[in-house]
Design a protein around this nucleic acid. Structure first.
Lengths: 352, 352
DNA sequence: CTGTTAGCGCTTTCAA
DNA sequence: TTGAAAGCGCTAACAG
């Protein structure tokens, strides 16, 4: 409602020129200590803060990184954003986070908004880089960008090898005696990560010489618990469910309970993502852990570094971080095989 | 890296003046259809998007709402932000969300950043409005603002009556036979909501003629599960734990499990917030539910409306939304009283 | 070390 | 209906 004080106001009150005021905020050491302190005092008194828009307009750099995430309702992305925020602050950048809600058009729109806001760089978590029109626009406008979680040979990415992780996990389950292992996923077409993990599942099953692969796609209308419970209550239910993310795994555990099944006694459930909350659940969620905040901070570092160097990031700069496994308590040998549930003990680590 | 196209570029290519280009984007109907279409075509071709900074600088309004939240790692605030984002989009506003991480200085800093960004209004979730220096600055700069979750007679707030909610909840527990009811909270000094809820606890205990009040403050170093488990393993443990938020409740359930206690058989646990995830847990979390997204969207509506009217919001415009109770499965009569756990059936509602 | 001045991209009178 | 021109708040030459 009231007009914010500007350089003129401060300059007038301090009896100096607007240039001096500007210098105090940009190159303080170039102005006489005495003058500097005077200006600082006056600025503080009137509550002057340099207008970021004017500054951006003039300098052609905003020191802002645009961030596009699918949603913040999934803690995975909230954790990642946390990492992004911290790293950005450390590097002297602000962030402007937007969510696409997994809608293609929204993803597109986010890119437009961020471009209009003159962000210096973009950190993107896309549904699927291969088909993203927003990404195409970013490339053709030559905006510096990096993808996170996504993996694609044509783009700079910070990610983990989800395929190997799931393959490895399935191998472990097979060694524990599981033969009926199902994969639970959101709609595959909606996410390259889901596809990646599904490929890992298939590879793992193949490697273990298990033929009965099964994909349970949970359309994300409602939470999907009822749908899952129905499957578990029916005949021929799997002994293990490998879920494409932790939220889905939590729902599987719930569905098992609703079907009168004990986890892990009657049913093994594993997740993917390693959200912090999973550690506080009972049973503690067995899951593939990603370094979510590191994925975020690493992407900031990459882009900030590219910005400093003045050259765009290439697919060549892609980084694959390590994943891990949390043993948890939702995993055991299948009921037929072991008289008493035996825990998984494997907790290996892998890099690519 | 590459310079974005601007009005001049588009004007030149379309053979019109920059003013006409501007009009096409701001008052399309005032320009000849033929000219308009030409400009639109050219703009689209070169991928022109009006520079938001320049526009803001010139018009002195950004159509951006600044949002300050404690953290996004607690789904409560992510849910609220979701509501804010939707309502803002619907009203033609963008949002600029920042997190304070419950640090006073950061809260302050967020306000500065948002002021510098020329946001048209502020939506704030503060640690404590009574002591926030950031808020003081907002007021003295006469920035339009509204507080969410916080409650304070001197400020416009969108909130629920947490005190009554907890009091009511405690009453219900007492009626179920609980006498040893403890309150579990984060550090009280860190949040006016925690204080509010604690007052409700005290009031509820008083109303039920229960004298043994007990506050368990969980410092948020680590998750606090070990601390809680230790308390539960010791003598004189309560039969019910009323938690100040759902995340804490989840940890209490975990702690109970680690101490060999069954929830709700041996211990009743209730939460506060009504995060969506609580519904998928086993036992399903019994909790006070807040309309998190409505709190967010309502605050947007208030501020947008004030902006349109050109007059600031006053404490008078404060809105109290209704809370509810989710029965859940983490609540039962205390072990001494009932041979078999009996469920709470109360699910009342209250407004203030 | 400090002041004057041009101009970032845009909107908006004011004229035509 | 369209164009010319001023100016939002700031920074960065350039002079002094």
């Amino acid at each position: 409602m009231s007009s914010a004080p500007n350089v003129h106001e401060v300059a007038r009150r301090a009896g100096v020129s607007i240039a001096t005021v500007s210098r105090v905020f940009n190159t303080p050491d170039v102005v006489l200590p005495q003058t500097r302190q005077l200006v600082q005092r006056v600025a503080h008194e009137v509550g002057y803060v340099p207008n970021a828009n004017a500054r951006t307009l003039r300098t052609q750099r905003s020191r802002v990184l645009g961030v596009v995430l699918p949603t913040l309702l999934n803690p995975v992305f909230a954790e990642c954003l946390q990492g992004i925020a911290q790293a950005a602050t450390a590097a002297g950048y602000s962030i402007l986070p937007l969510t696409s809600e997994y809608v293609r058009e929204t993803e597109d729109h986010c890119v437009s908004v961020l471009a209009a806001a003159n962000v210096d760089g973009l950190i993107l978590v896309l549904a699927d880089p291969a088909t993203s029109t927003g990404l195409r626009r970013v490339v053709q406008r030559k905006l510096p960008y990096v993808l996170v979680y996504n993996r694609h040979p044509d783009h700079p990415c910070v990610s983990i090898d989800g395929e190997s992780a799931v393959a490895e996990l399935v191998g472990t389950l097979a060694m524990m005696g599981h033969r009926d292992i199902a994969m639970v996923s959101g709609v595959l077409a909606n996410s390259d990560r889901a596809q990646q993990r599904y490929r890992g599942y298939l590879a793992g099953m193949r490697a273990a010489r298990l033929r009965g692969t099964r994909l349970i796609e949970v359309p994300f209308v409602e939470s999907g618990v009822d749908h899952l419970a129905k499957i578990l209550a029916g005949p021929g239910r799997p002994t293990a469910m490998v879920c494409s993310n932790d939220l889905l795994a939590i729902r599987c555990v719930r569905a098992a309970h609703l079907s009168g099944l004990n986890v892990p006694g009657d049913l093994t459930v594993t997740g993917f993502d390693g959200i912090a909350l999973g550690e506080d659940l009972t049973p503690m969620l067995s899951t593939v852990t990603q370094p979510n905040d590191a994925l975020g901070s690493r992407s900031v570092q990459l882009i900030v570094q590219a910005l400093a160097a003045g050259e765009a990031l290439t697919p060549h700069s892609s980084v694959t971080l390590e994943y891990g496994f949390r043993e948890g308590e939702s995993c055991a040998a299948p009921p037929e095989t072991a008289s008493q549930p035996q825990r998984a003990t494997r907790a290996s680590r892998r890099r690519t």
